Simulated scan of single mutants.
Amino acid sequence: MRIELVKGVNLNIIPSKQFKTTRIFISFIKSIESKKELAERALLANYLEMCSQNYPTQIDIARKLSQMYGASFGSSVDRRGNYQLINFSIDYIESKYLVGNEDLLSGVIEFLKEIIFNPLKVGENKNFDEETFTRQKNNTIT
């Protein structure tokens, strides 16, 4: 199944009968020109995982994942040769195991779109949240 998240960004879902959960894995691949760019993209991935406009705290994200029957979400950064990948993944339970066969897919897609394309920006200049950004910067450095 292929879903266009935004123009030019497609999500491919490959179903499996082997597991009771479904994993959606999204990668953004870019060639890296400098170590600074590598660090900036790693910091960006960490920041996006922690907050968004509709989920401004980690607690808000945890609550939303709990509402989706304990879905598991995370981001990671990989390097392959001269390319860096920012990855987002989410695991959620198959609809057939839920009462009434509730379909979580649309909610999961909306959650991913929110996290990836709607980062938490505050203030007059709409900058990243300074406290969260600094915490993630310190976590990335150590």
Score class of each variant (00 low, 15 high):
Ile26Asp: 09
Lys64Ser: 03
Gln58Thr: 12
Asn87Leu: 02
Lys20Gln: 11
Asn87Val: 05
Gln53His: 05
Ile14Arg: 08
Gly70His: 09
Val6Cys: 05
Lys7Met: 01
Tyr97His: 14
Phe128Asn: 14
Ala39Gln: 12
Asn118Cys: 09
Asn10Val: 02
Asp103Arg: 14
Ile61Ser: 04
Leu65Glu: 04
Ser27Gln: 15
Gly100Lys: 10
Gly8Glu: 08
Gly74Leu: 02
Ile29His: 11
Leu48His: 04
Tyr83Ser: 10
Met68Thr: 02
Ala71Asp: 03
Tyr47Lys: 08
Arg79Val: 13
Lys20Asp: 06
Ile13Met: 11
Ile14Met: 03
Pro56Gly: 07
Gly100Thr: 05
Lys121Asn: 04
Lys35Phe: 01
Ser27Phe: 02
Glu37His: 08
Lys126Ala: 13
Leu5Arg: 10
Ile86Pro: 00
Glu40Ser: 13
Val9His: 10
Thr21Asp: 10
Val99Asp: 12
Ile90Asp: 09
Met50His: 05
Lys137Met: 11
Leu38Cys: 05
Phe88Val: 07
Pro119Asn: 10
Ser31Gln: 15
Asp103Lys: 15
Gln84Gly: 02
Glu94Ile: 00
Thr22Arg: 11
Tyr83Gln: 15
Arg41His: 06
Ser75His: 06
Phe73Pro: 05
Val122Asn: 02
Cys51Val: 04
Asn54Tyr: 02
Ile93Pro: 04
Lys137Ile: 00
Leu65Met: 10
Ile93Asn: 05
Phe117Tyr: 14
Leu38Asp: 13
Gln18Asn: 12
Val77Asp: 00
Ile86Lys: 00
Val77Lys: 07
Ser89His: 14
Ile90His: 09
Val108Leu: 05
Ile14Phe: 11
Phe133Ile: 04
Leu112Gln: 11
Lys121Phe: 01
Ile86Trp: 01
Asn125Thr: 05
Lys113Asp: 06
Met50Lys: 15
Lys121Cys: 10
Asn12Ala: 12
Leu98Gln: 10
Ile59Ala: 14
Glu102Tyr: 10
Leu98Glu: 08
Thr22Ile: 13
Gln67Tyr: 08
Leu98Arg: 14
Phe28Pro: 03
Leu112Trp: 08
Asn138Leu: 14
Phe73Leu: 07
Leu105Thr: 10
Ile13Cys: 06
Asn139His: 07
Ala45Ile: 00
Phe73Cys: 11
Glu37Arg: 11
Gly100Met: 06
Phe88His: 13
Phe133Gln: 06
Asn101Pro: 03
Arg2Met: 11
Glu94Trp: 00
Thr57Val: 01
Gln53Asn: 06
Arg63Cys: 07
Ser27Ala: 15
Val122Trp: 05
Thr22Pro: 00
Ile24Met: 02
Glu94Ala: 13
Ser76Asp: 08
Ser52Gln: 00
Phe111Trp: 06
Ile90Trp: 01
Asn12Pro: 01
Leu5Tyr: 07
Val122Ala: 00
Ile86Thr: 14
Lys36Leu: 08
Lys36Tyr: 01
Asp78Trp: 06
Lys17Asn: 12
Ser31Pro: 04
Phe25Ile: 05
Gly107Met: 05
Asn125Ile: 01
Leu11Lys: 09
Gly123Tyr: 06
Glu114Cys: 09
Gly123Glu: 04
Gly100Val: 05
Glu37Asp: 14
Glu131Leu: 12
Ser66Pro: 00
Leu11Arg: 11
Ser95Ala: 15
Arg23Phe: 00
Asn54Met: 05
